[in-house]
């Protein structure tokens, strides 16, 4: 395995860990939301929305991690593509994108 492949493997590991913990945090918030909602607490929807927001942020985080990783390994084209994808998802979330 050459240096480029080793860098790719290390990036794969980082992305994998980030996705895993993003899912775990989202699941924790959603679980709290579901319990609070079932108990009649008004905080239930807020926790659920926070869980969904964390979940929807994992793809952005994925793209940003890739942008950083490819930039550091000198693969500027892929870094730019990753940044483009991340910015585009963020613009959609903020309602700024109008084709």
């Amino acid at each position: 395995m050459n240096a480029g492949e080793q860098a790719e493997r290390a990036l794969q590991k980082r992305v994998s860990v980030a996705l895993f913990y993003g899912c775990v945090l989202s699941a924790a918030l959603l679980s709290c939301g579901a319990v609070l909602f079932a108990s009649g607490s008004g905080l239930g929807p807020a926790f659920s929305l926070a869980g969904v927001a964390v979940l929807l942020s994992t793809p952005v985080l994925r793209a940003l991690l890739l942008a950083r990783g490819y930039w550091r390994s000198g693969e500027r084209l892929f870094a730019a593509v990753a940044l483009f994808v991340a910015v585009f998802i963020l613009l959609s979330a903020l309602g700024k994108y109008r084709p």
Partner: peptide, 19 residues
């Protein structure tokens, strides 16, 4: 995520069902 964000901002995503 790009599509979901649009629906999310329009209020179509129901949190009590999403959980």
């Amino acid at each position: 995520a790009a599509s979901a964000a649009v629906y999310f901002s329009k209020g179509y995503l129901l949190p009590e069902l999403a959980a």
